[in-house]
Design a protein around this nucleic acid. Structure first.
Lengths: 253, 253
DNA sequence: CACCTCGTCTCGCTGAGCGATACGCTGGAC
DNA sequence: GTCCAGCGTATCGCTCAGCGAGACGAGGTG
């Protein structure tokens, strides 16, 4: 029962197939799925067809696609968590006040998963996508989450390899640690083109009742024009307000 | 291989377990899952534990919960579809202009599935939830989608049972057909407390290149105050603009 | 105490799932 | 045109993953 990376059970094979889809590909042919999963062709064929019947996959003329049932399940998963629904109004307010790109992200392992993204029509150069991932050390949200996290997680990330994503990515553990300390002090973290060239952002944590970070909000914009510090106040207000609502929700048993 | 309604395969059992979760329950104990699925206790126990390992379920002290992996998959499913990402900016614009509740919905069978919902802090009495469903005949989005749909679908819904959800729900096929004809004519559908008492809305279709409806947008508000006709222009503009963007996207092979 | 319900675990039986193999189709190379 | 590669699909015995009756301990209730 150990967490074996091999595909022993039917379910693990099925999820391997589902996980083989990335955010970018619209439709994936059978052969490609075989390649990505390493499963036998007949197996993929059989399971994929069954998944189509269960609405977890869609059959398209030129391949498969993640299905509508998955979307429903995913939204139900997020609804049960409640975070997204409660957060949206605050994110909208923040967007309306700043008219810059607003992100909501949570931690998942040592990555950040984006839960919501609000931006106008001009959000050309942001690689982030809702449901997508980013390493913690190179994003504002990741850094502020890490700063408020426990020592073990901080140590794990700092000791792990800090991938360089742009020339500005902070890959020196010492420098990163200093930034984290500063973020813990001030309650906000900045990012200057560390995940994407041309993109700057500020992030603030949404803290739970015990002071543990449950999510983080960020405001981002293009580097020449965007002044992150001008949005700190509005950002902090939104984050703490959301934290308050979450705490109140959890208080009702 | 006949479409047996019973749970023959492992996968169908696993999805039965996942589907046993509703939007409202935060956590479900094992015994309750056994009851809802009708599966053997040992089976649910085994599968649920495996699903936890695959991050499709989360283990909580007092039961199971839909897991974070499902959310990621769901968002990827929606990203591949592309609709949500392209639509969001238009929905935000619409919200900013009206400051009323904005919905984006698509058809799924004879139901409407809500893909996005934007509303401020005061959205108390809307039962709709992102990822949730509603019958077509009693919602603005549903009616406008049905009006622009093919004859077979229209016939199916009109001949099927029209569930009465409120005293104002249109349950007479003839009356509904007239409303659909009007909606097809004018390009918008109205709903007056037909799904929820106290809720009024207007909806407009997002049409694909071939004139087929791919989604619909609605603006909703509380019945005493909300004047649906004042938002028709902005709504129509948003819907057609979104349709144009979608068409342009699909044009690029 | 007896009597629930709930979660967990064991253990043989068996059929669901496996993958080697094969077939028909399409499209590009030549 | 022929050849071939890669695709999706279908077949069919073998076997082990998955099944479910049942047992067990923990909590809760009368």
């Amino acid at each position: 029962m150990s967490a074996s990376p091999d595909h022993a059970t039917v379910l693990s094979k099925a999820t391997a197939i589902l996980d083989a889809f990335t955010v970018d590909d619209r439709t994936v042919p059978l052969a490609e799925l075989v390649r990505r999963t390493g499963l036998h062709k007949a197996t993929v064929h059989r399971l994929a067809n069954e998944l189509v019947g269960l609405r977890l996959l869609d059959r398209e003329p030129d391949g498969y696609r993640l299905g509508g049932g998955l979307f429903e399940l995913g939204m139900r998963a997020s609804a049960e968590r409640g975070l997204l629904e409660l957060a949206m109004p605050f994110l909208q307010d923040l967007y309306e006040r700043t008219h810059e790109i607003v992100h909501l992200g949570v931690r998942e392992g040592t990555d950040v998963v984006y839960v919501a993204k609000i931006g106008g029509h001009r959000q050309a150069r942001t690689p982030s996508r809702v449901g997508g991932r980013m390493p913690m050390h190179c994003t504002g949200i990741g850094k502020v989450l890490l700063a408020h996290a426990g020592d073990d997680l901080r140590r794990e990330v700092l000791s792990g390899p800090l991938v360089r994503r742009t020339p500005h990515t902070v890959v020196a553990p010492g420098a990163l640690r200093r930034q984290l300390d500063a973020a813990l002090e001030t309650g906000v973290a900045f990012e200057y083109e560390e995940s994407t060239v041309g993109l700057v952002c500020v992030a603030a944590p949404v803290l739970g009742p015990g002071g543990e970070p449950v999510a983080a909000i960020s405001v981002a914009g293009p580097s020449p024009r965007f002044r992150p510090d001008t949005h700190v106040a509005a950002l902090r207000a939104a984050a703490t307000a959301l934290g308050g609502v979450l705490a109140r929700r959890d208080a009702r048993s």
